[in-house]
């Protein structure tokens, strides 16, 4: 057992856990994009940043790659952490504004403005497809190529790879392949539609009765927020 201080509380954790595992075990919500259960931690999207240490020596680390340490002081929702998270969401949103997953993250974590020009790319280099292909499908058909601004993901020589079985797992896990829903602001850089609508049942019955429990996600029975 390893004891550490999580948001001011003494907690016991297991050896081999990461800070993300610990926070999720104790019910704290930490957004992630490049992290996926079953794939090795990547630490690329920086959405899961938490603050460790105290005072002027406190620093931000990616919780999905940081192993638990005895006596570590961790804060998951400080002002600094939230600002960093929002910035990362905003940056990724400017890269791929057509991605549903990133638009959802923006709505969920209160990113309501976009200060960067949209680049409308189809990839945020989270590497989920590559790790999926390698670790779960055991194919190693795709990977990173080139570097810097030329970096891209593809098969060798950009032709169909011999290793590829067309299983489609890479597309299944891709956050940018799922296009955003056609909400009321479908052509804007930032959607935030989920913040502006609520399910009709909430007003009629005073209770959320949607069996999907996914308020307004489908867009069929929603109305504008009254409050």
């Amino acid at each position: 057992m390893i004891a550490l201080k999580l948001n001011g509380l003494e907690v016991q954790t297991e050896k081999g856990w990461t800070l993300l595992d610990t926070a999720r075990f104790f019910g704290l919500e930490i957004p992630t994009l490049c992290h996926m259960d079953g794939l090795t931690p990547w630490g690329g999207c920086r959405l899961c940043v938490v603050e460790i240490g105290e005072g002027p020596r406190a620093k931000l680390v990616s919780s999905c790659t940081y192993p638990v340490e005895e006596g570590l002081v961790v804060h998951t929702d400080t002002k600094r952490v939230i600002a960093a998270r929002r910035m990362m969401i905003e940056l990724m949103l400017s890269t791929a504004p057509m991605s549903k997953e990133i638009q959802d993250l923006a709505s969920r974590f209160g990113v309501t403005r976009q200060r960067f020009p949209p680049r409308n790319e189809e990839c945020v280099y989270c590497g989920r497809c590559i790790r999926m292909c390698d670790e779960q499908m055991d194919a190693r058909a795709i990977g990173f190529q080139y570097r810097g601004y030329k970096k891209k993901i593809g098969t060798p020589f950009d032709i169909r790879s011999e290793e590829c079985r067309l299983c489609g797992a890479c597309m299944y896990v891709c956050p940018a392949c799922a296009a955003r829903c056609g909400g009321p602001n479908a052509d804007t850089d930032i959607c935030n539609a989920c913040l502006q609508v609520e399910p009709t049942c909430l007003e009629k019955y005073g209770e959320l009765t949607c069996w999907m429990y996914d308020a307004g996600r489908c867009g069929t029975c929603v109305q504008e927020k009254k409050s």
Partner: peptide
């Protein structure tokens, strides 16, 4: 040659390409 290197050295072709393009 890259395909041959991949086979003989036992590194997946995409990794050889990754190094060669990096």
């Amino acid at each position: 040659a890259l395909q041959q290197v991949s086979r003989s050295v036992g590194v997946p072709l995409i990794d050889v390409i990754g190094v060669a393009t990096f």
